[in-house]
Structures are given as C-alpha cells and as structure tokens.
Design a protein around this nucleic acid. Structure first.
Lengths: 143, 143
DNA sequence: GGCTATAAATAATG
DNA sequence: CATTATTTATAGCC
C-alpha cells in the first residue's frame, strides 16, 4: 500500500558538541535527562548500588535522582570524600566535605567559647539552647 | 564458509531486578557505570548542563563524575537545595542543604553573640579572629 | 508528546 | 577483555 510510506528518517548520528539551537538543545536535554535517570535507577536495582545524579538544565533548573536518596549518597560521599578521587572524572576535590567538617568544628568551638565566656562573665542570658535548635534535635554532622 | 558461524546468542532482554550472582552483578555494574558516566558526559557537552553522578559499587567503592566538578555541582545543589525537590526522584529532602545553611546561620549567630558577650564583659581576650580562621580566608558558605 | 528508523548500549559468550 | 546478536536509546519529524 502506498499510503503507508515511512515519514521519518529515524535516528541520525550526531556529533557530541554543544547544540547551538536553543530549542533543539532543550528537547535533547529533556529526553536525555530522563534516560540518564532511568539508567541510574536500573543500576541501583540491578546491582544494589547507591547512586545519585544531579543535573542543572541549561536554564539552570535543578533535577535530581537519588537512591536511597540524594541526601544519603551525598552525605556518604562527603564523609568519605577524599578516597573517591582516584576513581573520579572531571576533577573531584574534597572541598565541600572539608568545608562542612571545618565549619562544624569551628561552630562547636565558637559555642564552647561562648559558653566559657558566659560562665566567666556571669551574665544571665537565656539562649544556651542553641546547640539543640538545629535540623531535628540531633547533631548536624556525625563526623 | 561453515567456519564462520555465529557463536553468540547476543544481547538478551533482562528483568530489572537485583542480580543475585555476585560475579555477574559486578560485571554488569562495571559496564553500566561506564555507560552512565558517558551519558552524563554527553549531556554536559550537548546541552551545556552542569552534571554530577556519584555511585557506590555493591562493594561500597565510590565512583564519581562531575562537570565542571562534583564539588561545583554539589555546592550548587546544596545552596539551592529546596526548590529542586519538585523535580526529584527517589526521595530528595533538603536535609543536607538545610542542615548546612542552618549550621552556618547558627555558627554566625554564635560568633556574633560571642562578640557581643566579649564587648560586654570588657575582657581583653585575643581570639576575635575566629571568623577569619576558616577554610581559606573567605566565608565558608556564600549563603 | 508520539512515531520510526537507525545509532548505541549491552547480555551472553569466547 | 573482544565479539555478536539484540534490545534500548534517541535524532529527526509531525
């Protein structure tokens, strides 16, 4: 039947370089992002692996996938950060993890100092509960 | 020629469920991890997207890909954390980002309080430089 | 968002 | 780790 001829040229090979056309880039981003997440998901299921994918669209909109959760994986990564470098691509430095640990340490030091200062000054302030007032009642960093 | 017959059954469809055989799981993990990173890389190049992938092997070994770097992307994610939730899969909570912002805020408050306390007590201590003594001379979080 | 033809990924095997 | 037969992903269109 001549009424059933093919109307698509099907998939064509493309060069891996920045897509200049704004629209086409957005379309490709959407399609590929979905597949990337699917692949990540399959990897988790098939291999019982912890995985996390974070993507920012060309427009700067964030998308993420995480198993068991982005939280868990990033946490895991940050706390063990350094020794991951040998297997990484794209330049991984323990900056973030180090920064957080450092901040936590300084925060604790500041609190201790504050506490000591108060004791010394004998001022009767009432905000000594600061340490317990964070995320959910437990220490912000297990490190 | 009969000497050139096909000896492989080629790729076959598999069910997406945990691979029980240790060896097979490891092999699949290796192959798929490489492809996942490649896909992530292509997404970056084609769409000028920021991307980061963190994977822990079934054995607990970490692998990561990041463009421009895992650091950059995680940082970006953590600082903008909350509004990503709507597009996430797998249970993403702003715990980490919120935790860090909270910690930073409390840290700053503690420092301010400490400073006020010192001024009030008129003690001539010499550790007022605490705020500058962090990661590298600049504020640990831009938040 | 679908459809189709083709490129790419990959399960099984050597 | 190389091959090969298939399944999947996906570029080009509507």
């Amino acid at each position: 039947m001549s009424s059933k001829r093919k109307l698509s040229k099907g998939r064509r090979k493309i060069e891996i370089k920045r897509i200049e056309k704004e629209d086409a880039r957005q379309v490709t981003f959407s399609k590929r992002r979905v597949c990337l997440f699917k692949k990540a998901s399959e990897l988790c299921t098939l291999c019982a692996a912890e995985t996390d994918v974070i993507v920012f669209s060309p427009a700067g909109k964030p998308y993420s996938f995480g198993h068991p959760s982005v939280d868990t994986v990033v946490d895991h990564y940050l706390s063990g950060g350094n020794y991951a470098s040998q297997n990484s691509i794209g330049g991984v430095h323990p900056h973030v993890g180090a920064r957080i640990r450092d901040l936590n340490r300084q925060y604790t030091e500041a609190l201790n100092e504050l506490d000591a200062e108060k004791k010394r000054g004998m001022e009767s302030e009432k905000e000594g509960k600061t340490l317990e007032t964070n995320t959910g009642g437990k220490n912000p960093l297990k490190n």
